[in-house]
């Protein structure tokens, strides 16, 4: 019985270790995520509608990446990409929606 429990603990520990290794972000993950965020923010710039929060989140991603904290760097880069995409959506939808606000 106790051997069985030990085996279960050992297997769990091994699984956890394997999972942690699999979840930890690498420098390559960070670079991919950062490039995607930067590209989306550039597109927002072409639409003349960048957000200050995208820029600050991108900076935070870069800072974490340079410090070797790739988990934070990837999370921040993904956040920045989401913000940039939201600003693109805003700029695109406002091309017609601004008329709803007009005083006539």
């Amino acid at each position: 019985m106790s051997t069985a429990i030990r085996a279960i603990f050992a297997a769990s520990a091994l699984l956890l270790a394997a999972a942690t290794t699999a979840l930890a972000a690498s420098e390559a993950d960070y670079k991919t995520a950062y490039a995607a965020a930067e590209a989306a923010n550039k597109e927002a710039g072409l639409l003349r509608n960048q957000w200050t929060t995208t820029a600050s989140t991108l900076s935070a991603a870069k800072k974490a990446g340079e410090a070797g904290d790739f988990d934070t760097a990837v999370a921040q880069a993904k956040e920045a990409e989401a913000l940039a995409k939201a600003s693109i959506f805003q700029a695109t939808s406002e091309k017609e929606r601004w008329k709803d606000m007009e005083v006539r």
Binding site: W51, T52, A86, Q90, E94, W98, K99, M101, V103
Partner: peptide, 22 residues
């Protein structure tokens, strides 16, 4: 110029009109 005035922008989703008309 009119379009710019009424267009929502920024993360707060405000246009010039949000504050100065509404």
């Amino acid at each position: 110029g009119k379009e710019y005035f009424y267009t929502r922008r920024g993360q707060l989703n405000f246009s010039c009109a949000t504050c100065h008309i509404q």
